[in-house]
Amino acid sequence: MVRQDLRALLLLIAGFTVWSLAFVVLYGLQAIGCAYGWPNHRWLLIGAYVASLIPLAWLAMGKPVREGEPTTTLSIAAVWANRAALGAGILVFLPVTFVSACI
């Protein structure tokens, strides 16, 4: 029970923690790439965007509990939070695919 609760608590913040890290990385790549005139800057940003969505999708689609474990308040809240984090990741980072990066 303790292990399940601990896993649910960690899952509750996991999605948005990944989202925050992706936010920092993308914002940093955008700023540094512009400052130093990186070639293929756009593709690098898109690559980072896609890479950030993989763990977010994994967290959002994963089962909240393991086989034989009961569904709990925290595990359900964790699923919803992780799905929200995936949605936030798709929407907030989408502009890297089409918006001018350095102007």
Partner: peptide, 18 residues
């Protein structure tokens, strides 16, 4: 919506830093 509110508070906590 006790569980939805918990998820919403966590989401707000993180999003507010972005």
């Amino acid at each position: 919506g006790y569980r939805a509110i918990i998820a919403a508070i966590v989401a707000m906590g993180f999003l507010s830093f972005g």
